[in-house]
Computed example of a mutant assay.
Amino acid sequence: MLAPAVPAQATRLPAVQIMKVYYDSPGSDLRSNASLNGEYVTIRNTTRRAIDLAGRTLRDKAGYTYTFGGDVLLGAGKKLTIRSGQGGDGTSSVFWGRRAYVWNNDKDSAYIRNACGCGTTTGRPGNQSTDCADTPEDTRSRSLHAGTS
């Protein structure tokens, strides 16, 4: 009788995962608030428990950084969209409050890190890892190229 093969190291989803980055808002880049909010990042809680996002950061390769406030709780299995422009924060979207674009239109990288600063070590989809693999605060990066989301 043969035992089933078990991978040497099982890949575990990060607790907070970047699901989509819409880095090139539709239409001309006129820096209108509607256009700024047309670029966004959607994250998802991959666990069965709510996660307090207080102190976590979302940033791009150039270092533009959004820090989650103490009032953002991401429910189990829920998604949250972070929009670049201004608006009223709610349960499904929060707003960076910028008056200029964050994400490059042709390619960029997105990183989400926990409050202690643990975060990504790579930025290519399919080759994603974290330096906090033993904590529930795992994070993920996503490298963005034209046509990839």
Rank of each mutant, 00 (worst) to 15 (best):
E39D: 10
D52Y: 05
D71Y: 11
V16I: 10
A34R: 09
Q9T: 14
R49E: 06
T65Y: 02
G27H: 02
G77M: 07
P26N: 10
I43D: 02
G70H: 08
I43A: 11
T67S: 12
P14H: 04
D24I: 13
Q17Y: 13
A50H: 05
D24F: 09
L74Q: 00
G70L: 08
I18N: 08
V16D: 03
G70W: 01
Y66S: 03
D71K: 12
S28D: 14
A54M: 09
R31M: 13
D24M: 11
T57E: 15
Y22L: 14
K61G: 02
T42E: 15
A15Y: 05
A54R: 15
Y23F: 15
T11K: 11
R12S: 15
S25N: 07
N33C: 04
N33Y: 09
R12A: 15
R56H: 14
I51T: 05
Y22G: 12
A50M: 07
L74W: 00
L74M: 00
A15R: 01
L73A: 09
K61I: 08
Y23R: 15
N37C: 14
Q17S: 10
V21P: 13
K61V: 04
R12G: 09
V21D: 13
L58N: 04
A54N: 13
F68N: 01
K61M: 11
A76F: 08
G55E: 12
G63L: 01
V16N: 03
N45W: 04
D52T: 05
S32L: 11
T57P: 00
M19Q: 15
L73E: 08
V41E: 01
L74A: 01
R12F: 14
F68D: 03
R12M: 14
T11M: 09
R48S: 15
D60R: 00
R48P: 07
A50I: 00
S28P: 06
L30H: 05
A15I: 07
I18K: 09
T11H: 05
T47G: 04
F68V: 07
Y40D: 07
L73N: 04
T65A: 07
Y23L: 14
I43K: 01
T65F: 04
T67H: 03
K20W: 13
S28N: 12
R59L: 09
Y64S: 08
R59G: 11
M19A: 14
N45T: 04
V72E: 09
G75I: 02
A54D: 15
T42P: 08
I51N: 02
L36H: 06
E39K: 03
Q9Y: 12
T11C: 11
V72M: 05
D24H: 13
Y40E: 07
R56I: 06
R59I: 08
K61H: 07
V16A: 06
T67C: 05
T47I: 06
R12H: 11
M19P: 06
R49P: 01
T42V: 15
T42Y: 08
T42S: 14
Y40P: 05
T46H: 00
A34N: 11
T11G: 07
I18W: 13
T57G: 06
S25R: 06
T47F: 03
I51Y: 05
T57Y: 06
K61N: 06
S28Q: 14
A76I: 05
